[in-house]
């Protein structure tokens, strides 16, 4: 867990909510749900050390391994 990144992201998330909220008050509930859940995803991800973590890109590399080996030959 990296506190610096997490705190930084929290501040940014707060700023985004502050900036966006007044504009999307009339939007349907679904929009608000999506908005908050995406922000939450971002916040959760910032808690991990994502540089070293295996993520989607790493999975894609594994998925295309046969082709990758062809290119690395």
């Amino acid at each position: 867990m990296r506190w610096g990144t997490f705190l930084g992201t929290t501040v940014i998330v707060a700023l985004i909510i502050l900036y966006e909220w007044p504009k999307m008050k009339q939007n349907p509930k679904k929009d608000k749900m999506a908005f908050f859940s995406l922000l939450l995803m971002g916040l959760v991800l910032s808690m991990f050390n994502i540089q070293q973590m295996s993520g989607p890109t790493a999975w894609i590399v594994t998925f295309f391994k046969p082709f990758g080996e062809f290119m690395e030959k």
């Binding site: 998330v13 900036y19 504009k23 939007n27 608000k32 995406l38 922000l39 971002g42």
Partner: peptide
């Protein structure tokens, strides 16, 4: 997500 507008998700996606 069948949202009514794409603008609200722009900033959160930026973080992602």
């Amino acid at each position: 997500l069948n949202l009514s507008d794409y603008r609200p998700v722009v900033w959160p996606i930026g973080i992602l």
